[in-house]
Design a binder for these strands. Structure first.
Lengths: 345, 345
DNA sequence: CTGTTAGCGCCTTCAG
DNA sequence: CTGAAGGCGCTAACAG
């Protein structure tokens, strides 16, 4: 028999009981004798029964589906995060729908409509670079669909998020350079209206301050996460009237192209100049094996955000959570013992 | 009113007609007057009606969902492919469930079970490195669930796939080196039981042969896609009794670590030695901006595979298709004009 | 062209 | 503890 089409009625008939009892047993209801429960489960396994989630979800008015909105799947941080999201979601019995905003506000809005049309039970979002207005999240709130921001968040009241401790990361990176002896440290930033770049910048300033170094805004170089920006930043930096001896780059795209430009200019990295950059294992291995980097724990963030979201979905009633989970990003001084490792995420 | 809970019955009642007519109109059935159709659609929009796919799918016994199995989401080629899959699937009205095999046969099998339990309408697969036995795909065949291989495929009869023209890519890469003047060209391969690496290797040999160069198996270096392999390959290569003047690397992981090892050994790339490697824009920009690479068109492959799969799902009856779509990978000689571009996928 | 009827597979009152 | 009955929202016969 097609094990594909076994329903609770089939197994009820074979056992001369009612399908409602089967349903209860399969949902582990306490209102069924252990004995009959066991008979039912045995028969279900024997027939290769698989619950029809469509029917179940229709009845229960839920989808067991999570929506995810990220700027771009192919950026390593996000694909790692998605790996963590998928794995955790499946474990908790949820499916996942993934959408890309491609850093466009308009697409982010239409992504939300897609997810709404799919009646997702909850949403995970990392906002686009363009997003400075948060009206499109109101639709989710109205329908009481919980959502959790991860990595890139925004300050909507009564909203949860899972973040990297960007302040600490920026602080650690900068302090690392200071302890190494750098006195004049440039900061390659990202779009400063995004919280993550703002916080990394604040960390940078705090570390300078702690070590009695003045902040010089000529040393702040912003960028829009383009390759060309890193090159431009290096050129501007080298045109300064004084010598820079360290760089903390808060975005990896700029970090990478900056490294290359430095090399083209005949500057040895990281001997002539010390650099710390946000990155990931693969990339950091490539740009400069001895470079100190700060890994973005994408997988962990994805896992953590999913767990938080699912707990909100299950709690149902109180949609007014305002929980913030902070995940640390660790400074990694790469050395030869790390070669040959496969990335885990 | 909660636009969330509008059903066809609500709009039927408001218009004093039957819900079945509404259903027909919304499905654009030809058996409804244009006039009533318009009234219905207008009212639906007014109320913000959204079809409940769960109910519809339950009735129609389908899920409008595609399953995807890839070795690892965070590898750039696969995340690009997924971007193409998602975009195409949504356009065609399908959702997507993504699974990672992590290059493990066992996980690939359990992925298929997950997808079966989700009653997906079709599956896209890029097999794991371990997969040499294809029994686990029988379950899909039995239940008449169509599946399409992409990139990494296997020779199951009556099965479709979307592939890169790996033979041509290998041929082009090698010929490129020969035309540049290389006489002694090493080949860094991948696991040769995988069709893609076999075909690239065949292309390599064919180019040598065309240009009257002998194949020397001391110049063939295999690997398991680990960083360490590229390093080992370079060391072995440098230990040869004769000089190598070109490398064609058929896998990017090895290519990257190999480049670094060459530099550590004081060899200038690509002056002392010419290299062509499989890669992607970002990575190739990093390892060596002037390096010639072969881009894997992940997005296109994802799109194409999805279109093929959906057409098979819609054709329903004939599950015996055996279609192979070949996508070309182009040789890219990077130059400065390509800097600053954002990747599109 | 439109209405009536029935049922996809499941879960949940309400009775017993 | 279990059975009977109804309905989630939609669509597809079958009538008219």
């Amino acid at each position: 028999m097609d094990s594909d089409k076994i329903t609770i009625h089939d197994i009820a008939k074979l056992l001369n009981i009612d399908s409602s009892t089967v349903s209860r047993a399969l949902n582990n209801s306490p209102r069924v004798t252990e004995k009959t429960k066991n008979r039912i489960i045995a028969k279900a396994n024997e027939l290769g029964y698989q619950r029809n989630h469509l029917a179940s979800n229709l009845r229960l008015n839920k989808t067991n589906t999570l929506g995810v909105i990220v700027p771009r799947i192919s950026r390593h941080f996000f694909s790692s995060a998605i790996a963590g999201i998928e794995e955790t979601a499946y474990k908790l019995g949820f499916n996942v729908i993934i959408c890309q905003s491609l850093e466009l506000l308009e697409r982010e809005q239409s992504n939300i409509n897609t997810l709404l049309a799919n009646r997702v039970d909850g949403v995970l979002v990392s906002i686009s670079m363009e997003t400075e207005n948060y009206d499109h999240f109101e639709g989710l709130k109205q329908r009481k669909i919980p959502f959790v921001f991860f990595d890139r968040h925004c300050n909507i009241p009564e909203t949860s998020s899972v973040l990297i401790d960007d302040f600490k990361a920026g602080f650690d990176a900068t302090e690392h350079l200071i302890i190494k002896g750098c006195q004049s440290i440039a900061h390659f930033s990202g779009p400063l209206h995004l919280e993550i770049y703002k916080n990394r910048f604040e960390g940078y300033k705090a570390a300078l301050s702690k070590h009695n170094l003045d902040f010089n805004d000529a040393l702040l170089f912003s960028s829009r996460l383009m390759e060309q920006d890193g090159i431009d930043n290096v050129n501007k930096m080298l045109a300064l009237s004084f010598r820079v001896d360290g760089i903390f780059s808060a975005n990896d795209v700029a970090a990478i192209s900056a490294m290359q430009q430095l090399k083209r200019e005949g500057i040895t990295v990281p001997k002539d100049i010390a650099v710390v950059g946000f990155s990931n294992e693969t990339i950091s291995a490539i740009i400069e094996p001895s470079l100190t980097t700060i890994n973005q724990p994408g997988f962990d963030i994805g896992r953590s955000a999913t767990e938080l979201l699912v707990s909100q979905i299950k709690n149902g009633t109180k949609h007014t959570t305002n929980e913030h989970i902070i995940i640390h990003a660790n400074l990694i001084e790469r050395n030869s013992s790390q070669k040959g490792k496969q990335p885990k995420d």
